[in-house]
Amino acid sequence: MFEARLIQGSVLKKMIDAIKDIVTDINLDCSSTGISVQAMDSGHVCLVLIELGSDGFEPYRCDRNITLGLGLKALSVVVRCANNDDSITIKAQEGTDNINFVFESPNGEKTSQFEIKLMDIDSEHLGIPDTEYDSVVKMPSHEFQRICRDMSQLGDSIVVACTKDGIQFSASGDMGSGKINLRQSSLVDKEEDQINIELNDPVHLTFALRYLNYFTKATPLSPTVTLSLKAESPLCVTYPIGDFGSMKFFLAPKIDD
């Protein structure tokens, strides 16, 4: 038996919105410690990793490790039927080919039940190594979204450069070019507005903006985002989910032919 109740059901809605343009099917890997999802886009260019600790759910019950394969289209349709303040309970019995969703309004007056057929999804798991990054930049998530959106007006690729002076995003195309510089903030009222730059080594990488713009669909999940960069390695874009999980996107850099 697997059962997990998320008090803030809107978090699940936001998670699905964040990935539905990148991946079509996902496997929920459920264990006693929590739920994880690893999925790649059809071109195998980027990778999504969601990790949710069991402490984010009340109750959480997972008697045996179980993998639940779901089509995102169906999941998206069902989850959209929940109100933002509903709690969402996910239930699956061993040996059945269905997953159940129960939505409950805060006062308990309205409950809705939906069922989705499980799918057998053949997904390849990649081992993500522990990486010591050259630079780790934490910034407001809406700021990163804005930069990616603005830069994609100019070109298909964005150059991200971290130095002791800060982080620079640049793009160029037929129309012209643009550069945006961010420096570490000194005095900021709210922690979530802070730009924090940890620099071990200067780093200079190029990424496809198409994917970064997909990643920024996760902006509603968190006021902050962390970019972890290392030369010749995939970028890791992390959105924390409350204090119990995270959504990470990995994107390989574009490299010279």
Binding site: H44, V45, K254
Partner: peptide, 14 residues
């Protein structure tokens, strides 16, 4: 020009 390499070249299959 620059090209995009797939994830397989960075992360090993489990």
């Amino acid at each position: 020009g620059k090209t995009q390499h797939p994830m397989y070249e960075y992360f090993l299959k489990k």
